[in-house]
């Protein structure tokens, strides 16, 4: 790799815009391919994020569909079966109560969490079967309030 002083000949070359078209075409193709990849995988991977009242009002619309629901956690309702690692709790916002069932490692922040984001879907019994839960703290880097 030469340094710049050693290669003034390269800098001095000028030529008509002969090669730029193929670069333009190649560039457009690549950008289009990336845009297509974004759009194609976007469709399959979007999940509605709803507050508990929004979810409660549109239960029919979201039946059987994976959604993320954010609701206040009713601390008194938490039941954890340590043997089976099945966690049951309610989200409660005013008069709306939504039972949630989750199986897996329980987040450390659950016992003093204020609200929960549960991802999953509603089953036929009206219980929200969560496959992941996130206990809300304002930011990973902000202290939890």
């Amino acid at each position: 790799m030469q340094n710049v002083i050693a290669t003034p000949d390269i800098r001095a070359t000028t030529s008509p815009r002969a090669g730029s078209l193929k670069f333009l075409i190649a560039g457009v193709l690549i950008v289009a391919a990336m845009a297509f990849a974004v759009l194609a995988s976007f469709q399959d991977n979007t999940v509605y994020y709803l507050t508990l009242p929004e979810f409660s009002a549109q239960k029919a619309k979201f039946a059987g569909q994976v959604v993320r629901v954010n609701g206040p956690l009713d601390q008194a309702s938490i039941q954890l079966d340590q043997k089976t690692m099945v966690l049951k709790f309610n989200m409660k916002d005013g008069g709306i109560v939504q039972p949630v069932v989750y199986k897996g490692v329980v987040p450390d922040t659950l016992t003093n969490g204020e609200s929960v984001v549960a991802e999953g879907k509603l089953d036929a019994q009206g219980v929200f079967q969560a496959n992941s839960i996130l206990v809300k703290c304002p930011s990973k880097y902000e202290e939890s309030k």
Binding site: M34, V47, Y48
Partner: peptide
């Protein structure tokens, strides 16, 4: 008015 979020598979696929 509805938040639509994108999951990790999107980022991995792209």
């Amino acid at each position: 008015g509805n938040q639509i979020s994108v999951a990790a598979p999107f980022f991995n696929q792209v």
